[in-house]
Design a protein around this nucleic acid. Structure first.
Lengths: 209, 209
DNA sequence: CCTAACATGAATAGGACATTCCGCTTCCGG
DNA sequence: CCGGAAGCGGAATGTCCTATTCATGTTAGG
């Protein structure tokens, strides 16, 4: 393969990722080609059809995410910290993709497998963080993944933007390591104030299993 | 206007709201008509074109939301509690609408005005809650509104589902009323654990302005 | 029972998108 | 520096989907 062709291929994948992320999975092939500074014909030289492109983009992104997650998971740090890093990393990527793929039928079996692997990996980390006592235990790993997905795919997400931080704070449980403060951090100070956030209070689960 | 005609009109608006919420703003007129148990022709009898329908649906929903917010705001309770109620109320509505409208150019000036009013109203409540000391002050009301919007429009949002609760907890600031615990709720218990959520720590802003 | 309102849904018109095709341009080994 | 294979551009094609209309049949309600 000629050198310039390889360069162009990379460019296409990068542009496609950006556009899927910023404008949803419906972007036209022509827009993608234009964003890459190429003609549609070139795009079709590299990918026989839309599905092939989407698949490549997805697999590349998912593989990158998996590697990152595995690397972090190998570190000797609390699982909570692993999750924080992974989440922040995701928030820095153009990733509406994940939603697109998860929610879109036309995905190759290979891609679905990758999605499954990444999900399982993250769910594991979450579950372990809960064991560890650094994460609230009143919601399931699946629910947490759903939340993370929403937050990370929201347009304009950034690794350290305030909204990502708010979510992480919400996830961490105010009682932190699991046995810090005994009750809600501060007593209600106004009549009618429901203290924390009403409805499902933090589960009183013991610190370790 | 004949009685059955009025009934059908209501049905159309309700169905349209549901479909916009569940399937995005791209749903076809035919789908809307079918969901209402009517023919397309009937739909066009009541609304000259798509924009008219969208506008009516939007205005009706936004007006309802504004009324609810105003009612809550009139109560003699902490602003935080007002926000919680409004947010939970929104989460219970089919409201992908709001995103649709905010992000879609084809909106009538009247609708945009309504959106502005509701936004201003909510921003006010948020700002007052921050003054009050019941809400974290390290992010702006606008950012908080963005977050609320994302959470409330996410598919499957419910008034008291765990994800809504997580977000509210994150918003509340662990130090609750603003002068409870002096530092992070609990000390780091593991090497490398960044305590809260790393990066932008809670601003040390004084309790009242 | 009569008729003005109303409802219907097949038919029309328009637009958007994926994909193809062929003449032109650019690499790169010798 | 040359030749030709590899690559590229982008107008043209074919398909699908949707908003909107209209001629015809149905119904409320006085």
């Amino acid at each position: 393969m000629r050198a310039d062709a390889r360069r162009n291929r990379e460019r296409i994948i990068a542009s496609a990722l950006d556009l899927f992320a910023s404008h949803g999975p419906g972007v036209s092939m022509e827009d993608i080609a234009q964003a890459a500074g190429l003609g549609v014909g070139t795009l079709y030289r590299h990918f026989p059809d839309r599905l092939a492109l989407v698949t490549d983009v997805a697999n590349s992104a998912l593989t990158g995410l998996r590697e990152h997650a595995l690397t972090q998971a190998a570190e000797d740090i609390p699982r909570w910290e692993v999750l924080v890093r992974v989440v922040r990393h995701c928030a820095g990527q153009p990733f509406a993709l994940i939603t697109s793929l998860t929610g879109t039928p036309p995905a190759t079996p290979g891609t679905q497998k990758l999605v499954g692997e990444v999900n399982a990996l993250l769910a594991d980390i979450v579950a372990q963080a809960q064991e560890e006592g650094t994460m609230r235990r009143d919601i399931t790993p699946e629910q947490i993944l759903g939340l993370v997905n929403v937050m990370v795919c929201r347009p304009g997400a950034q690794p350290d933007d305030p909204l990502t931080t708010v979510m992480l704070d919400g996830l961490r449980s105010c009682r932190a390591a699991g046995e810090g403060a005994p009750g809600p951090a501060a007593a209600a100070r106004h009549p009618g104030d429901s203290g924390s956030c009403a409805v499902p209070a933090l589960a009183p689960a013991d610190a370790d299993a």
